[in-house]
Nucleic acid binder design. Structure first.
Lengths: 353, 353
DNA sequence: GATACTGTATGGAACGTTTCACTCGCGGTC
DNA sequence: GACCGCGAGTGAAACGTTCCATACAGTATC
């Protein structure tokens, strides 16, 4: 179809096929004169390297797979963006797969990527795929876990310290005077969800005055699930409601926010505070600007890809867990009740008429 | 590296290499008995097809490229999701590239995808790449434009009628009693931006009472640019401000919304109405829930991929432009001044205390 | 009984690159 | 002047599939 092969270039430039290949891959080993002639021929004929043949013979791939848990989540699109930046600087393309928390899809993409013989796989895992990843590695395809700590150290990982994040979030809530705190999120087979709750509990236990953490499980960490959970909270008698919500991520928090309106009156932050996790770009633009735990998402992507490349270069490289610390970003959704009046002074705060 | 090749499978199953290949590709042509034996051997040996070799020989690729203008924009992540769904049902993987409105990146990804010999390319173009795409097509790689109408019909395209959308948006604004309308967006070398403005002008001209459309150009269709534009509007004396803003997309609209707060008082919708475009999931969760023109984003992705596959099957297929009509979604950000009091009855509306 | 046909299965060529063992010329060294 | 080493280039094998021409056995047709 394409028509112009390396052989044509060689002929046109008056050199052998091998020399053209050398120009392409190790220009230093070829005389400047030949390099020049070959490059001109490539230019003139519009030659484009056939990656399939290259991959077949050299066994080296120019693509990296990225299996993402939730591609709609701005946090992940940021992570992907970081990985993409790093990848493009190495002339790699990204094979992208969105699992939407579906084990079957996850497996499908890993199969697909294995057939493709990608250079490596970045994955924010959902199901238990350790053995699947081991098999990939046995075939020379390393994997790096993204947004998940690899507890047993079998794989390198890049993540944020969710336990610390959970602790910081709840410490902040307690610091603003909240005492009846609920954790809203799920499913609990997601490591991050468990960790954030665990951190929350640590903060609760360490508090000077006793604090209880109630758990409101959601089916998924999505806006819709947040809305549902918010409605359930509203359905309770007033005195029985929590006075602060720690959402497993910003999507859930945004859903809660949407739901917590009674008779046109927004309960946040005066009756109920909300803090999310991720600090997605939309958190600050929400109905009530959302406090959140910021993750260095692009950096996570970049770092993960870099580690992946190091492991492709040396498969026996010792695994390492990279953990970033999240950063508390305070906005109006956790303004303390006492300071409620002064909240209107907060930039970007919204006071109704 | 992988180790187990089709030859091993053949040996293990006691058939020839050709037969295994037939089982893999045309199981109907092989006796049930052989199919069974081969499949068992594949299972036992853990054989995985080498896609590079397959692609090299058969000349058929199992990946599709998707070059996206702005991967952070939820509209595009939705479109990608739609394409991905369709792709995975054909056992295709998506090579993903985010150009971020950068001509160099755009070209880089097209080069990369050409080397990869993808089955086809889905692209929301930024620069002028018609000739580049023609060349791809000449090499057997068709392309379908996404979110952009192909005026000259050289390529198939899937998009939303931006002119109609712009018209509907401004008609709505006029219907709520606004008269001094500004269009906020840019850059104007983006087709969609131009079209939306053109539609807005049509609505303004058709209005019973004369309406002026002011144009506030932004550098990019982003939240940040929206914030900047909003600040510029605020800087004007009150009487000189528009009473309605039509933003080129929801990101810009969200930025405007963030900026339009004076002394803690939100000017939207009472003094200034805002309507966006795309109806991204976060539009409804914004500070003031955002009216917007909804695009069937997933459907756009699905459709584009389907058309692409049809064109790979028959390259001489006549090009076609698929255009969806956007849908007006009214929320609080365009509540009419007169009806302002009743706005609190709108579900999800937020009234301050 | 010869012929044609059908359903299966086979072996080997071909896809376009990379890589490796090799050749060739040339200048330097003993 | 024989030998060595080196830089530059060559030619052919190999990567793991797919596909095609072919073979073969069995059955239907005349």
């Amino acid at each position: 179809m394409a028509g112009v092969r390396i052989r044509d270039v060689a002929q046109h430039a008056g050199v052998s096929v091998g020399t053209v290949s050398n120009v392409l891959n190790r220009p230093g080993d070829v005389s400047p004169d030949s390099v020049e002639r070959v490059n001109r021929a490539i230019e003139q004929l519009g030659y484009v390297r056939n990656d399939a043949a290259r991959k077949l013979r050299a066994g080296v791939s120019t693509t990296v797979g990225f299996v993402v848990l939730d591609g709609q989540n701005p946090f992940f699109t940021d992570v992907v963006r970081g990985a993409e930046d790093e990848a493009s600087s190495h002339n790699l393309a990204i094979l992208y797969g969105n699992t939407d928390e579906d084990v079957a899809r996850e497996r499908m993409y890993l199969d697909l990527f294995e057939e493709q013989q990608v250079r490596g796989v970045l994955i924010s895992p959902y199901g238990d795929i350790h053995s699947r990843l081991e098999r990939l590695r046995a075939r020379g395809i390393p994997a790096v876990l993204v947004d998940r700590f690899s507890g047993d150290g079998r794989f390198s990982s890049v993540s944020v310290d969710s336990v610390a994040g959970g602790r910081m979030a709840v410490e902040h809530l307690i610091g603003t005077g909240r005492r009846r705190i609920a954790f809203v999120g799920g499913p609990f087979d997601m490591q991050q969800v468990r960790d954030r709750l665990a951190g929350a509990r640590v903060a609760a236990e360490n508090a000077a005055t006793p604090v209880e953490i109630e758990v409101l499980a959601t089916e998924a960490p999505t806006v819709e699930a947040g809305v549902v959970a918010g409605a359930r909270i509203l359905a309770r008698p007033r005195g029985d409601r929590p006075d602060a919500l720690f959402a497993a991520n910003d999507l859930v928090a945004l859903g809660l926010l949407q739901a917590l309106v009674v008779d046109g009156r927004m309960l946040v932050p005066d009756e109920i505070a909300i803090i999310g996790f991720d600090d997605i770009p939309f958190a600050g633009a929400a109905a009530v600007p959302l406090s959140s735990m910021r993750q260095p998402s692009r950096m996570i992507g970049r770092t993960a890809l870099r580690i992946l490349l190091e492991e492709t270069a040396d498969p026996d490289l010792i695994r390492r867990q990279t953990v970033f610390l999240p950063e508390l970003v305070v906005r109006r959704s956790t303004a303390s009740t006492a300071a409620g009046a002064s909240a209107s002074a907060t930039p970007g705060a919204i006071r109704g008429r």
